[in-house]
Nucleic acid binder design. Structure first.
Length: 474
DNA sequence: CTAGGGTTAG
C-alpha cells in the first residue's frame, strides 16, 4: 500500500495510510516504518522523515540508509548522520557508503572521503560497482585524476556506462576535453546521460559547433533527447547567435512533447535574447507558468543588452514584488542595464540596496558597473573615491577606466593625478603606456608623451600601430 | 534504500 503511494508520489494518500497504521499499531513494524520513511524522504519531507526515524522503536540498516537517502540533497547532514552511525556502532553497507561518498564529492573534501575509504577497507565491505563508481566520483570531484585513472583501471572487469561518464566528466572539469571525447568515443554503451554530458562539455568549453555536431550524431544514433539535452543545445545556438537553428530547436521541443520546465524556459529566453530576438524572448518569458531567479535574471539581462534599461528596471521591480529574491547575478544584469542606459541615480540606489537590503557582498563585476556609471556621468571625483574601496588587484584596471573617462570629459587635473598614480602602480604594460601617452598628448604635455613612447619601445620591439595618432572621442 | 548530465554574469 505504501509502496503504491510513493510510486505515485502521493503524499496525502500516504499520510492517510500513516494515520491508519498508527491506529492499528502496525507502525512499530520495521518494514512499515521504513516504507513510511521512504515516502517522506522521496517527497522532500525531510523533517517528517527525521521525526519518524527518531520515534521508531526498531530500526535496521535499511532505516538508516533510507534516512541517509532522504538527506541526499544536504551533504553536511549526510556526513553528520554517518558519524552518528559509526558512533552508535552501526556498520554501514555499500548502500550507505555510496550516499556518503556522494556527499564527500559534493563537499569536495578529500580528507573525509579518504577517512571513509579507509573505513570501507577496514570493515571489509565488498567494493561493488556502485561503490567503486561513487569513489571514482569523489576522486574526480577533488581533482585527483591520477587516483581516478588508476581506480578506473582497477575496475576494468566491471566498469559500466556510469564509470566511463564519471571519468570523462572529470577530464572535462580539468579542461582536457579531447581526452574526454576520446573516452566517450570508446564507450561501447552510451546512454542519455553520457550523450548529454559530452554535448554540455562542448558548450562549457565554448565549442558550440561541436556541441551541435554531436547532437546531430545523437539523433542519427536514434537516442531520444530529453530536456537536459535541449538546454545545452539551446545554449550552443545562443553562443553562435544562430536564430534559425534556435527556432528549429524550439519547434523540436514542442513537437516532441518535451517539458518546458524552468531550465528549458530560461535557456529559450537566453537563446532568443542572445540571437537578437528580444520579442520572442519576452513572449517566452510571459508564457512560462513559473519563474525562478534564473528566469527573471535572464530576462532582465536580455532587456539590458538590447538597451532597454527602463524596461529592465521595471521588470526588476516586478520581480521583487512577486517575492523573488534577486541574487548577485541579478544585480550584475540590472547594474549593467543602468550603466548602458545612463541611469545614474537608479544605479547608485540599486547598488546601495544590494549591499544594505540584500546583504550581497559586491563582486568586481558590480564595482565595475558602478564605476562605469559614475565615469560616464562625469562624476569623476565620486568615481575616484569609489576606487579606493576596491581590492588592490583591481585598482589598475579601474584607474584606466577612470583615466579614459577623464579624457572624455576633458578633466586634466584629475587625469594627471590618476596618470601619476598609474605610472607608479602599473606594471610595464603596453596598453597602459599607450593610454598614458594618449592622455598626455591630449593634455599637451609633450615631454611626458615622449617618455611614454620610449617606454613603449623598450617593452616591445614590435611597432605598435596607432601610437602616433591621438584618439579623441567626440 | 544507492552512483553519472541541465538555467543567469564583458
Amino acid at each position: 500500500m505504501l509502496k503504491a503511494c510513493w510510486r505515485m508520489g502521493s503524499l496525502s494518500k500516504g499520510k492517510e495510510v500513516h494515520a491508519h497504521v498508527t491506529k492499528t499499531g502496525l507502525d512499530s513494524d520495521v518494514y512499515v516504518g521504513n516504507a513510511l520513511l521512504h515516502l517522506y524522504g522521496s517527497t522532500g519531507q525531510v523533517t517528517d522523515a527525521r521525526r519518524l526515524f527518531d520515534g521508531m522503536p526498531h530500526r535496521d540498516l535499511a532505516s538508516w540508509n533510507t534516512l541517509l537517502g532522504a538527506y541526499n540533497d544536504n551533504a553536511v547532514e549526510v556526513l553528520v548522520l554517518f558519524k552518528r552511525m559509526m558512533y552508535e556502532g552501526i556498520g554501514g553497507d555499500h548502500i550507505s557508503m555510496v550516499i556518503v561518498f556522494s556527499a564527500c564529492g559534493k563537499i569536495g573534501g578529500t580528507e573525509f572521503g579518504k577517512e571513509v575509504h579507509g573505513y570501507v577497507i577496514k570493515v571489509g565491505i565488498r567494493p561493488a560497482l556502485s561503490l567503486s563508481n561513487a569513489l571514482l566520483w569523489v576522486y574526480t570531484r577533488c581533482g585527483e585524476m591520477d587516483a581516478a585513472q588508476s581506480l578506473f583501471v582497477e575496475m576494468a572487469a566491471m566498469r559500466d556506462v556510469v564509470s566511463h561518464t564519471i571519468l570523462f566528466n572529470g577530464y572535462v572539469d580539468m579542461g582536457s576535453i579531447d581526452l574526454a571525447r576520446g573516452i566517450f568515443d570508446q564507450m561501447s554503451v552510451k546512454d542519455l546521460v553520457s550523450w548529454n554530458s559530452m554535448i554540455h562539455a562542448y558548450v562549457k568549453a565554448k565549442h558550440p559547433k561541436k556541441a551541435l555536431e554531436l547532437f546531430r550524431k545523437m539523433e542519427n544514433e536514434m537516442v531520444e533527447p530529453d530536456e537536459t539535452t535541449m538546454v545545452s543545445v539551446l545554449a550552443a545556438c545562443a553562443s553562435l547567435a544562430d536564430l534559425q537553428n534556435g527556432r528549429l530547436v524550439h519547434r523540436f521541443i514542442l513537437q516532441n512533447n518535451l517539458r518546458q520546465d524552468l531550465f528549458v524556459g530560461t535557456a529559450l529566453i537566453d537563446m532568443y535574447a542572445k540571437c537578437g530576438s528580444l520579442e520572442e524572448a519576452m513572449v517566452t518569458f510571459y508564457k512560462m507558468d513559473s519563474r525562478d531567479v534564473f528566469t527573471w535574471t535572464t530576462a532582465i539581462e536580455g532587456l539590458a543588452n538590447h538597451g532597454h534599461g527602463d524596461k529592465a528596471l521595471s521588470l526588476f521591480t516586478k520581480m521583487e514584488k512577486q517575492g523573488i529574491k534577486p541574487n548577485q547575478a541579478t544585480f550584475v544584469s540590472i547594474l549593467m542595464a543602468c550603466s548602458r542606459s545612463g541611469l545614474v541615480k537608479e544605479g547608485c540606489l540599486l547598488f546601495k540596496r544590494m549591499v544594505e537590503a540584500y546583504q550581497i557582498q559586491p563582486k568586481i563585476e558590480h564595482l565595475g558597473c558602478l564605476l562605469d556609471i559614475l565615469s560616464r556621468a562625469g562624476l569623476l571625483h565620486q568615481a575616484e573615491e569609489f576606487i579606493k574601496l576596491m581590492p588592490p588587484e583591481e585598482k589598475i584596471i579601474a584607474n584606466k577606466t577612470l583615466l579614459s573617462a577623464c579624457m572624455n570629459h576633458l578633466e586634466y587635473d584629475l587625469g594627471e593625478k590618476i596618470a601619476n598614480g598609474l605610472t607608479e602602480l602599473s606594471s610595464q604594460s603596453h596598453a597602459t603606456h599607450i593610454l598614458l601617452s594618449n592622455f598626455y598628448a591630449l593634455a599637451g604635455q609633450w615631454a611626458e608623451v615622449a617618455k611614454m613612447r620610449r617606454a613603449v619601445k623598450e617593452t616591445d620591439i614590435r611597432k605598435v600601430p596607432g601610437i602616433s595618432s591621438v584618439d579623441i572621442k567626440t
